[in-house]
Design a protein around this nucleic acid. Structure first.
Length: 426
DNA sequence: TCTGGGGTCCTAGGACCC
DNA sequence: TCTGGGGTCCTAGGACCC
């Protein structure tokens, strides 16, 4: 039996807002919001913006007057920047422990029980180093299980007197902490289950933790049971450091304006297929099936509604952009009905495998036959990495479609684009 | 005018097999 | 009316996460 587990959850504070601020010191202490693609709704807020009562997911148009009134700094999402900043934060954290699972763009779980240093002290150093090296403030919560570490993290963030770090391990009165966590704020319990649990009078993490195992399993499947046990201090969700190939990759967008023109739609869908190809190649993977889906505006119930999706198998699993584009065009031909105002489209691939070590089929060109194609894709990927996404494109994507996505408040790609590097003024 | 995008896992039920 | 007992595989739908 191993010694008792100790998990830490590292979480970047208001991550996207902090990324914008890291390169623009004038924004310190100012309210900031970051908008979703299309500048549709709020997906990140600085503490000052939260204090103004701007909720997560708020439609931007409804809050324009409030933004103006309080001088809120508004940014379109800049995922090139956030992705790169995330890598820097994770690299820094990984210097302190090998037992790390990157859980999302702004979160990582750490196992600290193999470390010699006292956990709270060690994580204090981690936080200070990340702040100094990247400019991103992070909070760290510590507990016997991942679910408890999540809760400890919440306490670290919400109660400033802890200075950004809090441990539930050896805390004198953990029940009092659990009683202060609303049921919907427990990791693994979302809106639906919260509603159901509240009908049974379960309103906080402490009450939930006292429930019967079988009762929970029956109503919330094994996942719910794991959450229950984890709250009781029994680890059920291990640190997952396995490098997995994704099961699916999707690229989809809502358009700024409805589109009726099939040619234009085809260019857009081909562009999504190309993005999916880039991401497949980035993972050294190929996909076996490709799906295209189309939707009209789901909010405009006065307009004719239509949505459809279809899937084809690729002749040979591939990550080659022209292969993906040809399939996407074929599927689009099947599902695109004229006369509708399309508002969203997407391309999804699955049947994903590693590009190497795959068994070839009889009709498949041997890998050496495909070398020229591979070289072409490699060259495109390198150019686009260096000079910015979509610098080099396939003709089928068209040339004049940037307006399709609204990004009125985009910040520079400070760290990933030669022409947009941060400048130091003397 | 304006409401994101990208993932995973579990279960129930149907089809099909012996 | 009655009409076994297992298995497996697939899909749709529902739940969750960030």
């Amino acid at each position: 039996m191993p010694t008792s587990t100790i998990f830490a959850l590292l979480d970047c504070n208001n991550f996207y807002a902090s990324c914008e601020r890291a390169f623009n010191p004038k924004l310190r202490g100012k309210p900031i919001v970051v908008l979703s693609n299309n500048d549709g709704c709020v997906i990140a807020r600085s503490n000052e913006a939260k204090a103004l009562g701007i909720p997560m997911g708020a439609p931007a148009f409804k809050f324009q007057p409030l933004f103006r009134k309080h001088g809120v700094h508004v940014f379109s999402s800049n995922f090139a920047l956030y992705g790169d900043m995330s890598r820097r934060v994770m690299d820094t954290a990984s210097r302190f422990t090998p037992d790390m699972e990157i859980y999302s763009i702004d979160e990582a779980f750490l196992r600290l029980d193999r470390m010699h240093e006292q956990p709270l002290e060690l994580t204090r150093k981690i936080r200070a180093t990340i702040l100094q090296w990247t400019g991103i403030p992070v909070s760290i919560g510590i507990g016997r299980t991942k679910t408890l570490a999540k809760i400890a993290n919440r306490v670290a963030k919400k109660q400033p007197e802890h200075g950004g770090g809090f441990s539930l391990v050896d805390y004198p009165d953990p029940d009092q902490i659990l009683a202060g966590i609303d049921i919907e704020d427990v990791w693994g319990i979302g809106r639906q289950y919260s509603k159901k649990l509240r009908e049974f009078g379960i309103r906080n993490a402490l009450q939930f933790s006292k429930l019967e195992k079988d009762w929970v399993k029956k109503r919330m499947t094994v996942n719910g049971m794991h959450t229950l046990l984890e709250l009781q201090g029994v680890p059920c969700i291990p640190l997952d450091q396995t490098v997995t190939t994704p099961k699916s990759i999707v690229c989809s967008r809502t358009f700024a304006k409805a589109i009726m023109d099939k040619v234009q739609l085809e260019q857009i869908v081909c562009g999504y297929a190309a993005r999916v190809g880039e991401r497949l190649r980035g993972q050294r993977c190929v996909a076996g099936q490709l799906q295209v889906f189309l939707l009209t505006d789901r909010f405009r119930l006065d307009r004719p509604q239509y949505s459809n999706a279809a899937t084809v198998s690729l002749a040979v699993p591939s990550s080659h952009t022209p292969d993906l584009i040809r399939s996407a065009q074929r599927v689009l031909e099947l599902i695109c009905k004229p006369g509708f105002e399309y508002r969203k489209a997407g391309v999804m691939v699955f049947g994903i495998e590693q590009e190497h070590g795959r068994r070839l089929n009889l009709f498949e060109p041997s890998p050496t036959d495909r070398v020229p194609n591979k070289a072409l894709m490699d060259a495109m990927d390198q150019i686009n990495t260096k000079w910015g996404a979509m610098t080099m494109r396939v003709a089928a994507e068209g040339t004049g479609q940037r307006w399709v996505m609204r990004q009125a408040h985009l910040s520079p790609r400070y760290t990933t684009h030669w022409k947009e590097l941060a400048k130091v003024l003397s």
